[in-house]
Amino acid sequence: MLEWLSLALLAVGAFFFLAGTVGLLRFPDVYCRLHALAKADNLGLGFILLGLAVQADSLAAALKLLLIWPLVLAASAGVGFAIARRAHALGIAPWRKEAE
């Protein structure tokens, strides 16, 4: 039962990573790509860690896996803001949908 839960969580995590990459390939500018990577990939990692944690040998091992998530989130939040700010400072104009 727990094993199936774990497999399902891992599959969901992989889906979000895929969605992040699809967004990176299809979105028109760096700002939109940042939305895709920052949100989808971090959620994907959260699901992967949770999927492995439910099958961990001990409570401590499970918590250790989950401890990784806030660290990577802090990294993504800081790097993401720095990228957006840099893009803005470089004068990269956001892509706009043309008026219909």
Partner: peptide
């Protein structure tokens, strides 16, 4: 743009 390449750090 150079900002796109910075996305590699996130990945």
């Amino acid at each position: 743009t150079p900002a796109d390449r910075m996305l590699m750090a996130l990945l």
